[in-house]
Design a protein around this nucleic acid. Structure first.
Lengths: 189, 189
DNA sequence: GTCGCTTTGTGACGATCGTCACAGGTAGGT
DNA sequence: ACCTACCTGTGACGATCGTCACAAAGCGAC
């Protein structure tokens, strides 16, 4: 819970009273590896803050899983679109490791915002952070070849390379598992 | 101006008085084909609503222009990230046709929000719309091959195909001009 | 430890797509 | 109408990457 408070304060100053209003919207849970935070066709009615562990978001395309992002400790993960509009999610969010989460319930969050408008500001910044992440990932594909995308991660997000398995990572980078394996062996020789 | 009011009302109800507060933030301009709404390394300090004409956003990668989106009549275009944080823009926004715009000045917009908090809600929805667009475009590359991406546009955004030139479109779809030309001739035969 | 399952490495081959080159078309300016 | 500049179509060729197949290595459960 401490880590979540720190996270909130890092993106916007929030008063003690606002925090007190926010508390009732929060709950915690621990998930095993492979459990789902959100499944496709479900409506997303919560934000998830990751205390420990990590998760991936992925589409299911004719049985193939296509990763779109990874989410680590001290990050918020959700489906913005589904959370905002109440539409069904087009993708899944699943743990890649045992993961401990803080869940922010949507309805209770809206309730809290009524009493403490500061919370709205936090929400807006969260939205913007997620949008930036989306923008980064889409420009990866726009600007770089498979090989260059790998190099981009090496210099900009090395932690992803360290923690994510080859199979998962290849899907994230939009290339075949074998291609990624070859890129790696080329670069370490 | 009428079309912008309609747009606002379509995404959130807004009272007459709020609209009166918003008006001073607005101005209009007409740009020729090829003029810039925003250049890379500039800070984005406005939202642009397109009355007529259309625009593209593009990165410059070693002299090559990589389109990331097109924006048509009755849409708002901006660089969310730069607008929100005050950082420099990594990409350009340029007209593809003679275009008439309504400019929403950032500072005056913030001023207006203070008097009419409804305006905040509109801003948040705008942000979400832009984020959805980003998400769609990035999943295009995640899920589909070049050929499939073209087919996706055919069924989901036919207006893009009608109005955008082959060269511009190929850059948007992340393939060579020649490849797109061949896909087209294959499908019409 | 050992068995079995999952993940990773590597070779061969073919398809797709990008690059280069050039011809034909189209549009705008004078 | 003409010229120029830009945009589009098409052929040839090669590089990259995906697919298939199988071997090697890692990891958990018992």
């Amino acid at each position: 819970m401490q880590s979540f408070l720190k996270y909130i304060q890092s993106i916007a100053n929030i008063s003690d009273t606002s925090w007190q209003f926010l508390l009732p919207a929060l709950s915690t849970t621990k998930l095993k590896k492979g459990e789902f935070l959100l499944k496709e066709n479900q409506v997303c009615n919560a934000l998830f803050f990751i205390e420990t562990g990590f998760c991936r978001s992925f589409y299911n395309k004719e049985g193939e899983e296509k990763n779109t992002s990874f989410h680590f400790e001290n990050e918020v993960v959700t489906n913005i679109n589904s959370f905002g509009t109440g539409e069904k999610s087009a993708y899944n969010i699943q743990t890649c490791e045992p993961t401990s989460l803080i869940i922010v319930d949507k309805l209770k969050l809206i309730e809290a915002s009524k009493h403490a408008p500061e919370i709205e500001t936090v929400g807006k910044k969260c939205l913007r952070l997620t949008a930036s992440k989306l923008e980064e990932h889409s420009s990866l594909f726009k600007l770089y070849s498979p090989q260059e995308r790998y190099e981009y991660l090496e210099s900009n997000h090395p932690q992803i390379l360290q923690r994510v398995s080859l199979t998962q990572l290849s899907s994230y980078l939009g290339m075949a598992r074998e291609t990624l394996s070859r890129i790696r062996s080329r670069r370490t020789n």
